[in-house]
Computed example of a mutant assay.
Amino acid sequence: MYIMYSSCTTGTPKCIVHGAGGTLLQHFKELALHCDVQREDNITYLTTCGWMMWNWLVSALFLGSRVTTFDGFPAHPTLNRVWDLIEDEGITHFGTSPRYLAACRRRMHPAESHDLTDLRVMMSTGAPLLPEDFDYVYDKVKPNVQLSSISGGTDIISCFMLGNPMTPVFSGELQTIGLGMDVIAADSNGDPAIGEKGELVCRQPFISMPVGFWDDDDGAKYREAYFDVTPGVWYHGDFVTHTRSVGQSGGMIVYGRSDATLKPGGVRIGTAEIYRIVESHPAVADSIVVGQSWRGDIRIVLFVILEDEHVWNDELIDDLRKEIATHTTAKHVPSVIRNVNKIPYTLSGKKVELAVRDLLHGEEPRNVDALADPTALDCYRNLDI
Rank of each mutant, 00 (worst) to 15 (best):
residue 74 P to E: 11
residue 303 F to P: 03
residue 374 P to S: 04
residue 237 G to H: 05
residue 319 D to E: 15
residue 132 E to A: 15
residue 245 S to P: 04
residue 295 R to D: 11
residue 1 M to L: 07
residue 259 D to E: 12
residue 364 E to Q: 13
residue 300 I to A: 02
residue 135 D to Y: 04
residue 296 G to N: 10
residue 37 V to K: 01
residue 178 G to V: 13
residue 271 T to L: 01
residue 13 P to V: 10
residue 47 T to V: 14
residue 127 A to F: 01
residue 68 T to G: 00
residue 157 I to W: 00
residue 339 N to S: 08
residue 19 G to T: 04
residue 147 L to G: 02
residue 5 Y to F: 14
residue 247 G to T: 04
residue 357 R to G: 05
residue 141 V to H: 11
residue 313 N to V: 05
residue 56 W to G: 00
residue 328 T to H: 08
residue 221 K to G: 15
residue 27 H to G: 03
residue 22 G to L: 02
residue 248 Q to D: 15
residue 288 I to V: 15
residue 212 G to K: 11
residue 7 S to R: 01
residue 277 I to M: 05
residue 84 D to E: 14
residue 343 I to D: 07
residue 197 K to S: 09
residue 280 S to V: 00
residue 373 D to K: 09
residue 36 D to E: 10
residue 201 V to E: 09
residue 63 L to E: 03
residue 97 S to P: 01
residue 204 Q to V: 01
residue 127 A to N: 06
residue 257 R to T: 06
residue 140 K to V: 00
residue 332 H to D: 04
residue 77 P to L: 06
residue 291 G to S: 11
residue 134 F to N: 08
residue 79 L to G: 11
residue 359 L to G: 06
residue 57 L to A: 07
residue 189 N to T: 13
residue 139 D to E: 14
residue 23 T to D: 03
residue 78 T to I: 02
residue 43 I to Q: 05
residue 144 N to H: 09
residue 382 N to K: 13
residue 69 T to L: 13
residue 175 Q to Y: 02
residue 287 S to C: 12
residue 368 V to K: 13
residue 179 L to T: 12
residue 160 F to A: 10
residue 358 D to S: 11
residue 366 R to W: 04
residue 207 I to W: 07
residue 122 M to P: 05
residue 184 I to L: 10
residue 342 K to M: 12
residue 153 G to C: 10
residue 48 T to D: 05
residue 239 F to R: 06
residue 170 F to W: 10
residue 238 D to H: 08
residue 93 H to C: 07
residue 232 G to A: 07
residue 368 V to T: 13
residue 359 L to V: 10
residue 129 L to G: 00
residue 68 T to E: 11
residue 125 T to C: 15
residue 300 I to T: 14
residue 7 S to I: 01
residue 126 G to R: 01
residue 219 G to T: 08
residue 368 V to F: 07
residue 291 G to Y: 02
residue 7 S to M: 02
residue 60 A to F: 06
residue 69 T to Q: 13
residue 192 P to F: 04
residue 262 L to F: 11
residue 76 H to L: 14
residue 307 E to T: 05
residue 180 G to C: 07
residue 116 L to K: 08
residue 239 F to Y: 15
residue 167 T to K: 10
residue 1 M to G: 05
residue 346 T to V: 13
residue 156 I to H: 01
residue 266 G to Y: 07
residue 345 Y to N: 12
residue 47 T to M: 03
residue 359 L to A: 12
residue 104 C to I: 02
residue 253 I to K: 10
residue 238 D to Y: 11
